[in-house]
Amino acid sequence: MANSARRRVTSSDVAREAGVSRATVSYVLNADPRQSIPEHTRRRVLEAAARLNYLPSPAARELARGSSDLVLCLLPDWPIGFSVGRLLEHLSRAVAEHGLTLVTHLASVKDGLVQDIWRKVAPIGVVVMGGLSDADRTAIQAAGIQAVHILDEPGTAEHNEMRLSQMEISRVQVAHLAGAGHRRLGFAGTDDERLAGFAQLRLDGVRGACEDLGLPEPVVHPVPLDPERAAAAVEAWRSRGDGEPVTAVCAYNDETALAILAGLRRLGLTAPGDLAVIGVDDIPSAGLADPPLSTVELDLEAQARFLADEVVRAAGGMPRFPDVSPISVRLIVRDSA
């Protein structure tokens, strides 16, 4: 073929080369047990595919066989902390229970290399832990590869479930602090732009919970992982000149909460007496803090099983954990709030 070097060889090219239909090519290359193909025809198709260097899509081949192969997890430019690492561990185990293998790749929309990755891996499904460019999204859809998104694709059911799980974290934080008598709450955001999406969801959850309980709008300050700058945020919450001082803070995550505790110590203050603090994630150091950190733990295993089921369901298979919801959180009460 004159242009075979300039574009990917397709099953149509193989069919023309072998003098058979595309369906016959599919039956032969997928070893479909339901079809009886004469041996000389089967050999002609295989020889044509070899001459053209045709590589059938693993996604199509695996789905046609009714079995499974690879799931690609596209991880954006996030810091790989305790929670992300645990989620990937659970996701790997969850897809393995479906007979799948998880392949994780760090990929940024800015890199322009996402299409190269999924084309090389040719997965039966993609878990997208962040945004995709319009070009990548369109190309993945055109290739028939099913994608499950965590934070984008607002119109999808999995999107809504995963977002709701993030907001539920904040609602549990607010309910605990309000139950302890705090009325003026703060929200400690992050100054890491890579985490802006998660931080915004959790802030939305705090705002919604405060509104539901008749509490004032939370006072928001970003808290860097630096004791001196965290101390500045603490002073801003405690010395508000425009109204009631903040007495308790919902932190974006445990690391941010630990920074607040460090800021309090820098000022000679303590939690919860001078400022109550509650985090998110229950990282190992949370229980070792001074004072031990109250926090909210998200059920990462449930989230992983939910994602694995969504991949299998999207690819036309049967979910293994049909009743699993990613909206499962647990309050861990210690001494900081």
Rank of each mutant, 00 (worst) to 15 (best):
D192F: 11
D192A: 14
E193V: 14
R194A: 10
R194V: 10
R194E: 06
R194D: 04
L195E: 12
L195F: 01
L195V: 10
G197E: 13
G197I: 15
G197V: 15
F198E: 12
F198V: 15
A199S: 14
A199R: 00
A199Y: 00
Q200A: 15
Q200T: 15
L201A: 10
R202F: 01
R202T: 02
R202G: 00
L203Y: 10
L203W: 06
L203S: 09
D204I: 05
D204V: 03
D204H: 10
G205D: 01
G205M: 05
G205I: 08
G205F: 02
V206N: 03
V206W: 02
V206I: 09
V206H: 03
V206R: 01
R207V: 15
R207S: 07
R207H: 02
R207I: 14
R207N: 05
G208Y: 03
G208F: 06
A209C: 10
C210L: 05
C210F: 07
E211Y: 01
D212I: 03
D212E: 15
D212K: 15
D212Q: 15
D212T: 14
L213T: 08
L213W: 02
G214F: 13
G214T: 10
G214W: 12
G214E: 13
G214P: 04
G214V: 13
L215D: 06
P216A: 10
P216V: 12
E217V: 08
E217P: 06
P218A: 05
P218M: 05
P218L: 02
P218R: 07
P218I: 01
V219Y: 04
V219P: 01
V220L: 10
V220K: 03
V220F: 09
H221S: 09
H221I: 07
H221G: 02
P222N: 14
P222R: 11
P222V: 07
P222G: 09
P222W: 11
P222L: 10
P222F: 08
V223T: 00
V223D: 00
P224R: 04
L225N: 08
L225F: 12
L225T: 09
L225E: 10
D226I: 06
D226A: 09
E228T: 15
E228F: 06
E228D: 13
